[in-house]
């Protein structure tokens, strides 16, 4: 039993927050990611991380607890590493790329697309406009959706054996989200250029998820 990742999308279809825990196929930062969404190690340009060394690096990063507790504000904790590596040789083909997973912006678009299509399908099939799509499952993971009245979509990926975790998403909204995002004058809620990430919110979300019994060791 475990939890893999959390996405929050706003009503403009943009991903405004991302957090991950036990992923073995990590996602990597894309070159055009907006600030204040995730704290993945940054890529300094397209192709800069295409080396066999950065592959091992990104793996160890995600395994050690998603780099969430670094307390660097809106800063980008990955930058020092990037500089130490120096100019990475343009090498290696698709093998390493597929192990590293998709760039973050691509993945966020796919997640949003799936959620929106399934939600619309469920609404059409049931003939009711207020029918809620709640979750879907594959043999490798389960996705939970909680949609707020303001159009925010909370998406949680857990392992397939988990029961419905919508209550957790609701708790995240009424707890950390309201306290540290909605009531935070420094967060621009309707911004199209940056996310809602801040230290308090990230810490509170992390604490909440880790306190769940299904989070595992």
């Amino acid at each position: 039993m475990t939890i893999y990742s959390l996405y929050i999308f706003d009503r403009h279809c943009d991903c405004v927050y991302y957090h991950d825990w036990h992923r073995t196929r990590p996602v990597r930062a894309g070159p055009n990611d907006r600030p204040g969404v995730h704290r993945l190690p940054t890529a300094s340009g397209p192709g800069a991380r295409e080396s066999i060394f950065s592959n091992a690096n990104s793996n160890s990063n995600s395994a050690s607890g998603s780099g969430s507790q670094q307390g660097l504000g809106m800063g980008q904790p990955g930058q020092q590493q990037q500089q130490q590596q120096g100019p990475a040789p343009q090498a290696n083909g698709t093998g390493a790329a597929s192990k590293r997973g998709l760039p973050f912006d691509e993945e966020a678009k796919l997640v949003y697309g799936v959620v929106l299509s399934l939600r619309n399908m469920v609404k059409k099939l049931s003939g009711k406009d207020d029918e809620q799509f709640t979750s879907y499952k594959t043999s490798q993971y389960r996705l939970h959706l909680y949609e707020t009245l303001t159009g925010y979509k909370f998406v949680l990926l857990s392992d397939p054996q988990a029961d419905s975790l919508r209550f957790v998403l609701r708790q995240l909204q009424t707890g950390p989200f309201v306290d540290y995002v909605v009531r935070n004058p420094l967060v621009d809620l309707d911004s199209r250029t940056q996310g809602i990430d801040n230290d308090q919110f990230r810490t509170a979300v992390d604490r909440h998820i880790r306190s769940l019994t299904m989070f595992g060791p």
Binding site: R25, L118, Q140
Partner: peptide, 18 residues
């Protein structure tokens, strides 16, 4: 979209939705 596919396992798509 599988966040942690078991090594060597084939890709597995949607099985059920609720």
């Amino acid at each position: 979209l599988a966040p942690a596919p078991p090594p060597g396992a084939p890709q597995a798509g949607l099985e059920s939705f609720e």
